[in-house]
Nucleic acid binder design. Structure first.
Lengths: 217, 217
DNA sequence: TAGATTGTTAATCGATTAACAATC
DNA sequence: TAGATTGTTAATCGATTAACAATC
């Protein structure tokens, strides 16, 4: 019931709140403080927080500890669940070594690659692709990170689906086809950077006809 | 004039269109085709495309080549501009080696790190931090990718700003403070994965009270 | 001409913001 | 009590969708 009142937009901001709340040292924190820190509207913050934490107190604010717990609960970070990396290239291995996942209730358990690579320097196993299905089913892994070359993406994705993975974070720049039951999120780094280039006004798109001077966004 | 009619939402979809258009083999492409491929509304696609490409023809669609050119023009991909990586750890070096940036008119020119690292295996120079300001000013670099440890983020960001960088793509999970003239985009991979976990319904947030069965988003 | 497709105007929807009531 | 802060209701804003006119 409660979850149905959380809009998509609100949901997207919750991790942002959590990130900031974790840095707060005081016992209580007000919506104004959060808003200022994150550059959001005060009312928006209050509305968002009210939807997940009923412990806000007039004149005092939100108990930091309680707020953090509620955020973590809604975001499902109470328990750590395993994920696998598919494609143990440079990016794949960089992600394996990244320990920031744990803060968000996730842990890379293993990686898979078509070529048997030297994993002696890694703390986690890099296994041949053929073992993925068995391994994932055995360890009940349902989240995968896809970091293979574009040409191998579809085949790898198929194998992931076949291994019982239902959520894929893809770093591949080509779209992949999966059944409706599987969620794919594309993380296109080049694209993010390109957007930044545009927002920062570095593209050749700035026309001289716009006599307003530089637009403020 | 034209650019002012592009909403933020539309702008965000343009790279998506470009990605797909580049895969199209036919001479012309209809909004219906694009919509189907990307899972968007037909009218939405038409409205978006109409705002950047005046060459749409009833009964025929959009000339693929022309559409691609217009998209690239608006997205500022005609010319390649340089970017630097700050923090030559695993992720930083993985990004250096990634050649997908070029497709979006960007090129990693060099990396900087506090520790002088072995860059003999790299095709691009990894230079000591002290040289960043001079190097960036000389090469007129205004875009930077931040991949340092959280503890070093603020200092590194300050140096980037000082080097004339006005757009930062940050992979650091802590917020950084920069002047208003600098744009920062946070790329929190762990967070993306966490969102996926939620969307895919793997968090412990699913309540038994929701008797609708699984929600379809 | 007829039909398919584009482009635009109006209606709907969702999210943000403003105003204000509630409360410790 | 007075004041600061929360929570909610109504108004505004922006984006999407629906209906339809324009056109090759």
């Amino acid at each position: 019931m409660r979850s149905s009142t959380l809009s998509k937009a609100t949901m997207g901001r919750l991790p942002l709140y959590l990130q900031f709340i974790r840095t707060v040292q005081t016992e209580n924190v007000s919506s104004a403080t959060v808003a200022r820190a994150l550059g959001l509207g005060e009312v928006q913050v209050r509305k968002d927080l009210a939807s997940i934490c009923p412990a806000g107190m007039p004149k005092i604010g939100y108990p930091t500890e309680r707020l953090r717990e509620d955020l973590e609960a809604v975001l499902g970070m109470k328990q750590t669940i395993p994920a696998v990396v598919v494609g143990a290239g440079k990016l794949g291995r960089a992600l394996m070594a990244y320990d920031g996942f744990r803060e968000y209730g996730l842990e890379i358990a293993a990686a898979f690659d078509t070529r048997v690579t030297d994993s002696s320097h890694e703390r986690k196993p890099i296994l041949p692709m053929e073992e993925m299905t068995g391994w994932c089913r055995e360890h009940e892994v349902h989240i995968g990170i896809l970091t293979v070359p574009a040409g191998a993406a579809q085949e790898a994705a198929d194998q992931m689906v076949n291994s019982g993975i239902t959520a894929i974070l893809s770093f591949v720049s080509v779209p992949i086809r999966v059944p409706d039951t599987v969620t794919v999120k594309h993380e296109n780094i080049a694209l993010s950077l390109a957007c930044l280039k545009i927002v920062a006004g570095m593209s050749n798109e700035t026309t001289e006809e716009d006599s307003h001077g530089s637009e403020d966004l």
